[in-house]
Amino acid sequence: MTWFLKLYPPRWRRRYGAELADLVAAQPFSIGAAVDLVAGAIDAWLNPQLAPPTSETKGNVMSIARVMQLKCAGYGPAVTPEDKARNVRVNLGGTLVLAATYLAMVWIWKRNQLTGDDYLLSLAPMTYLIPYLIGLRYTSLKGRSSRAQTIFIVGFSIVLTVFMLAVTWVATKI
């Protein structure tokens, strides 16, 4: 079950990884613990909570730089009102555009009586989720590299899409 620790952000792993690995190793595998670890990893990415530097690390330029970077990563003082407004624009605009696209696809597919409409319907929530994930660039993911942001947004979008299609596939089989 220690594999799940790889889902946590590197900085978080450096601080708590060894302790968490010991705790995980001391417990038998359970679905509940696995889900808890995945939820904890998502939380650690979205809300990195790391202690400010102690007296031992004061003067350590690398440590200070890391803390500054973390402060810029969440809903900290670096998130301006303009950033929040952009976040809202991306959410609302993206949802409207994708919802219209989705409705057009449903109209075309239903009219031609194509199969697969169940799968199409299962993707309806993505019209909101994709703009929401993109909006994180201006809040929770702010300060991360463009590469990290892209990997998170595209990766999470793919995971959610596959998950919804998989659930639909299962639903059609039972």
Partner: peptide, 8 residues
């Protein structure tokens, strides 16, 4: 508590 909740 699960390990993720505890360390969170």
């Amino acid at each position: 508590f699960g390990p993720g909740s505890l360390y969170g």
